[in-house]
Write a protein that binds this DNA or RNA. Structure first.
Lengths: 145, 145
DNA sequence: CCACTTTTCTTGAACGAGTCAAGACTTGGG
DNA sequence: CCCAAGTCTTGACTCGTTCAAGAAAAGTGG
């Protein structure tokens, strides 16, 4: 069951970053992989579909750990709760619908590392540029309130 | 005030956007103008320095109203509470220190409207691109933990 | 395969920025 | 000056997230 060949090898992913392989972590990893941009509540539900008795705290903890390890990435658009995805390390950004909060991935038009060098960084040592495009998703823009 | 001719006329700003001129709003506008990137708690304190008995709720409400009217702009970097500034409409972005949370303004290297056209917007109608540069401020980068 | 050490998970309570609601007060127009 | 609409005060409350203590599981060395 957890050795599904078509899906990423989550066990191996955990070992690769020197994290212990636990069922909560596997369930969370699989849940995030299956539902990109899902919020924590949904992920708790999804993780429980795989491991019925996981505590919400274990999910929160796993998400933090996996985020720090770089296996998942968290995004928190203003006005939204935390959301997670497994697509990491490829410098992609997000479009967020102002109306329904839906999120989609976008690659920057510039192609890579957009605007990473600010004109005047005030002495800050910058290591990441996070871009959020705000607008309306197809559904919401075609169905104005 | 004190002969400062460059100080914005906050009363006029409110009238220009068809908002009622109330003392809480003036106090909040002035507070935000005086302390760019301040969080709500600081702004409540700053507003009370000008108008001792403002309720926190009036400050929250004013901030929302002023934000909607475009007189102030709010920013909420992940892991931080809401912060506000009066510099609006000039497409500038922010550098946020991962360590101390300090924020500074930056103009995008591209000069204007950076990356506003995503490569594939998935049908979203985009109206704004928000950029946050993450890194370490001068103090934190020179004094590693 | 077992005992041990460390990390992780469970349970349950707590926190705090922000929001809601009802009634009193202001603002600005007439 | 008066009034209706819009704002503010007060105080309770929500809910995503975090904290804490003890129980359980993972990995390690014997």
């Amino acid at each position: 069951m957890l050795g599904d060949m078509t899906a990423p090898d989550f066990q191996q992913q955990l070992r690769d970053v020197a994290l212990r392989v636990t069922r909560p972590r596997l369930a969370v990893l699989e849940a995030v992989h299956a539902s990109p941009h899902a919020d924590t509540e949904s992920l708790i539900a999804a993780a429980r579909a795989l491991l019925p008795d996981v505590s919400h705290q274990a999910v929160y903890d796993s998400l933090h750990t996996l985020t720090q390890a770089g296996l998942v990435r968290s995004i928190k658009p203003a006005g939204s709760v935390a959301r997670y995805e497994t697509r990491t390390g490829d410098n992609h950004h997000h479009v967020v619908c102002r109306s329904c909060g839906d999120i989609a991935d976008v690659d920057c038009a510039v192609g890579h590392v957009p605007c990473l060098t600010a004109s005047d960084s005030h002495g800050f040592v910058i290591d990441e540029a996070e871009v959020i495009y705000w607008g309306l998703c197809p559904d919401c823009s075609s169905r104005p309130l």
